Computed example of a mutant assay.
Amino acid sequence: MNEKEGSCAFKKHKHENVPRSQRKEEKGSGVGSSSSMVIAFKSFQHELDTKHDKYERLVKLGRDITIESKRTIFILHRIISDPNKDGVLTEAENKLDVVRLKIKQVAQELVGEDLYQYNRAFTPGLQEYVEAVTFQHFIKTRCLLCLEDINKPLIFEEEKSDVKSTSIELLDDPLIPVLEKKQSNPNILSLQVTPVDYLLGVADLTGELMRLCIGSVGNGDIDTPFELGQFLREIFDGFSYIGNTGPYEISRKLYALKQSLAKVENACYTLKVRGSEIPKHMLADLFSTKSELMEHDEDIS
């Protein structure tokens, strides 16, 4: 008898020594589909799937908010050359109403949920919305829109029943608990912009103001760059108080703010010193060339 046959005989002999009743108990000791452990894990599975699906829906809504906000900014840039400025502002306001409807859908998804569990899904969209609405406000008033005024239009009324509940049974098993979601104040929905999103949106606003400055000069407007230069310096002073104490995104966007301010100040300097020497239709090209040279020098350093 070789070694392999000996081991098989040993296993068979060991199995025969176990009583038949004990072997039946071992076979029947498997976890059944109605056990409490399986029910608990099915409940966990459903909860995780629900959260993941909600997160994906919020990502799509955040992407829609970003796209519509960018379209609003593109519309507002037309105010440089469009003689019907009131029509441009009205069209931009209509676009912002569409964005607020998307934000309302985000608020509906977050009913009864922790905001900060899903904040990363739509926070880029809120920052883009802040950029668009502050840009519109600056064009109209030459002032910065505060956080409180941004959040006021983001309070919505919900036209539904007093209690909003969602009940789903898992795998039609009556032992699995039913999931319910109730709304404490169902007539009011709100999604407030956080201070961090506000700061990041204002930092992005400076880039649009720099583009507005260059476009204004190309259109023959030599007063707007000086207004924008003073406004950007005030924003830069405000961000200087924050410094590197805030989130990483603020420090990164502060660098872009410095670049925008330098380009606007360069435009103001050129207008003041050489404005009478260079034709107005060539000033925008001159600023663009100098901006590219500045960016190239900064990349090298």
Rank of each mutant, 00 (worst) to 15 (best):
N244F: 10
Q230G: 08
G215A: 09
R274Q: 03
A267H: 10
E292D: 13
A284K: 14
S240H: 00
I39R: 14
R20W: 05
D82I: 06
G246A: 14
S167P: 03
V111G: 00
S35D: 15
T194N: 13
V217K: 00
I79K: 08
Y129S: 06
G125K: 10
I214W: 00
G112E: 00
D223F: 03
D285L: 07
K85R: 14
I300L: 14
S7P: 07
V178R: 13
S29P: 03
S291I: 05
V193C: 12
V202H: 02
E148D: 15
G28H: 07
K182F: 12
K11I: 12
H13C: 01
L271E: 09
Q105S: 14
E298T: 13
I176D: 04
L191C: 10
A203P: 03
G207F: 08
R252F: 09
F236A: 02
K280Y: 04
E109F: 10
C213E: 03
G87P: 01
L179G: 01
V273I: 15
L205Q: 06
E234P: 00
E113L: 01
L191G: 00
K42R: 14
L170E: 08
G246R: 01
K70I: 10
L257Y: 13
R20C: 09
A107C: 10
G112Y: 07
K272L: 03
K263R: 14
A92E: 01
D149Y: 05
I155R: 09
S251P: 02
T224Y: 10
Q117G: 06
A132M: 10
A262K: 04
R100V: 02
L58F: 07
T166V: 15
S288Q: 11
D97V: 01
F226A: 12
E234M: 07
G125R: 07
K152D: 12
M210Q: 07
I278L: 05
L254K: 12
P124Y: 10
R78Y: 05
R142C: 03
E47R: 14
E265W: 05
I65Y: 04
G275T: 05
Y118D: 02
N266A: 05
S81G: 08
T224I: 04
K290R: 00
D204S: 11
T141R: 04
L170V: 15
G201N: 05
H13D: 08
P279E: 07
V111F: 06
P83N: 09
E25C: 02
F74Y: 15
R233I: 09
A40N: 11
T66I: 00
R120A: 12
G220C: 12
F122H: 11
N17R: 13
S276I: 09
F231E: 01
G125C: 03
S167E: 13
S36W: 04
L232K: 11
V133N: 00
P19C: 00
K272C: 06
L283S: 08
H52C: 05
R63K: 15
H15V: 04
N266C: 07
S251I: 06
A40I: 06
R274I: 00
H15M: 09
I168N: 08
E292T: 07
S276Q: 11
G215K: 14
G112H: 09
A92Q: 05
L286V: 10
S301N: 06
L175C: 11
K51I: 10
A203L: 15
F239N: 10
H77S: 02
S35R: 06
A9G: 04
D64C: 04
I79Q: 02
Y55N: 13
L147K: 13
